[in-house]
Design a protein around this nucleic acid. Structure first.
Lengths: 346, 346
DNA sequence: TTGTAAGCGTTATCAG
DNA sequence: CTGATAACGCTTACAA
């Protein structure tokens, strides 16, 4: 048996409008009548206004959608993404907001008009297929992009350039003039394999990507010491995974001259790299120095503890949530600091 | 400018019903007309039927809700929960299902009629305030419970009893007749502190809880060797956290006689316990043996690698998703195996 | 194969 | 302070 506002109204001899007000706008009716209505509703087992009907009429859903990676799965795997969601959910918890998780793969949106399902959107990272953005970025609904930019849309980023530059500076000082290699994350747009960047590879990506900024940061530090970064010493890695870090580092460490420093664009890559180095019998930091990026939890736990660039993922999540809810103290684009944390690996 | 079905219908001189069919029931009209409608929609910038209106009418939302812990945050912190969500999202990814994350705290449901927001519910763990269940368990919407049971609702569990019993058997064989302690997770219903179970503490919980089953498993193994478990040697811990494991283990290890075996109801507790032991100068497994539960990723990585009971969280997530979507190969309650994995710590 | 029309359960507007 | 009534945008019998 399905109960509606009408049933309550009927049973009490009042109008549906009044019952609606009793639930949604308490100030619109006498406390007394409201009491009676709520009591009757409870007695009959009515649980409150139907959410879909309410949204259809009011245009509000009480839900914020997070547009994540191609496949949702990834977000429960990668500690960086998970930490971001942790921050977001802290604010949603406080504000009683429903959290809708959406993948960014285009196919998902073919039969799915999600823009009506949420009051706002947080787009975490650039979708591979940018047509998704056209379906989502609807005028009128608050939308913010995280880790990339879109014209006309507020963005939240961390300062990848300076974080990377500081990391590289620190590393370069430690190895002086020794050789180095970079494990770069998705710096080639379409490549799905681990490998050196070839001279003729194109480094451009459709958005000013996180990786690109980090690479530029590394470069800037090298230039300060009159060095430059040869593409040959940059490994492209398609995803932030331990195994890829292992593989790329192994290739790099078996090259001649053997790098004394590995600049890694994520901690997971760095952890894989350390394992590869250890398996080759190298000591860290004596034989090889490794610097990561992200500062995931294990970076501090593991031995040797990882020197890395801390990015405030938790705070980033909180900021993203506040921005989309209009609760942020900032009114424009936000750039959070990324700070070098020196531990044992360099 | 907001576009609706009507606008498309108008612009083409057909009825709204036909436009609706063009999007939702292609077999109801000629391929030719459909082509024309879709073309016009695209030209005008119409993105497809509004999801709220569609659900109001059809009763379907394309969304499955996961009712998680009190605060959503926790699920992005605890690797066990995260792994479960990983499994769930794998199936949702395949089936293009929207994933709605809901906290289980009662307050959230006061002004929120969520039952209309989703086509089905997965309730992961018993809510502290069971009134939430009344608001959610609606006849007609597929609902399944995970890690607990509810009358009339399909459930998914792992075999906690046998997993724990096997763990305890293995540990008891290793220490022969030595003393042991248990780090028990939320085995006291209301306690928020770490501490020994007092004789007069009540062990009952409103549901047959996971912890209770694990405790019974430990007990069963002890009884096989004619031993029994004194409450005094059971520490209650309010949440599965490293720090609590550390604290409880420290208390246990400073007691007399000092336990030779720690049976821990989660890996995070076990990892904390190992750290506490090491800080007390104990060697594992020589001086102390530790067995965990869950088999989280770090259990295998860390040194000494943790002996633990593997629970198939990923598969559990997949099963939960399949069950709620009616895609499961099982038709009744499901019980997954929990298997002892022997590594270095015992 | 296509069109007509009656809702789905609310909330907003406006009048009383 | 309360009540009629008209949307909200769509789906689905049923009729043509």
């Amino acid at each position: 048996m399905k109960l509606t506002l009408k049933d309550i109204a009927h049973s009490l001899g009042v109008s549906t409008a009044t019952v609606s007000n009793a639930f949604s706008r308490p100030d619109q009716l006498s406390a007394d009548l409201r009491e009676r209505i709520l009591g009757e509703a409870k007695r009959l087992g009515y649980r409150g206004p139907n959410a879909t009907a309410r949204s259809l009429r009011s245009g509000k859903t009480g839900t914020i959608a997070l547009v994540l990676t191609e496949r949702l799965q990834y977000n429960f795997e990668d500690p960086v993404a998970t930490r971001f969601l942790h921050g977001v959910s802290e604010i949603f918890d406080q504000q009683n907001i429903n959290m809708l998780l959406l993948p960014s793969r285009a196919e998902f949106y073919r039969n799915n008009t999600v823009d009506s399902l949420a009051d706002g959107f947080v787009i975490y990272g650039p979708p591979r297929d940018s047509s998704v953005l056209e379906r989502i970025v609807v005028r009128g609904k608050p939308t913010i992009t995280v880790d990339f930019n879109l014209p006309e849309v507020r963005s939240l980023n961390i300062d990848n350039f300076h974080g990377a530059r500081d990391a590289a500076r620190h590393g370069l000082k430690a190895i002086e003039n020794g050789p180095l290699a970079v494990l770069a994350l998705r710096v080639l747009t379409e490549s799905e394999v681990v490998g050196r960047i070839q001279d003729d590879d194109v480094l451009a990506s459709p958005y000013e990507s996180v990786s690109r900024r980090r690479l530029d940061g590394y470069r800037a530090a090298l230039e300060e010491t009159k060095r430059s970064l040869d593409n040959e010493w940059v490994w492209n890695v398609p995803e932030s995974r331990y195994e890829y870090g292992y593989q790329a580092a192994r290739e790099a460490l078996m090259s001649n001259p053997r790098p004394k420093l590995l600049l890694c664009m994520s901690d997971r890559l760095a952890l894989g790299a350390i394992a590869a180095a250890q398996d080759l019998g190298l000591n860290i930091p004596q034989d090889l120095k490794v610097i990561g990026f992200d500062d995931i939890a294990t970076a501090a736990y593991q031995r040797p503890a990882l020197t890395t660039v801390h990015q405030p993922q938790n705070e980033k999540g909180r900021q993203a949530a506040k921005m989309v809810l209009g609760l942020s103290e900032y009114t424009k684009d936000v750039l959070l600091e990324a700070k070098l944390i020196v531990r044992d690996s360099c």
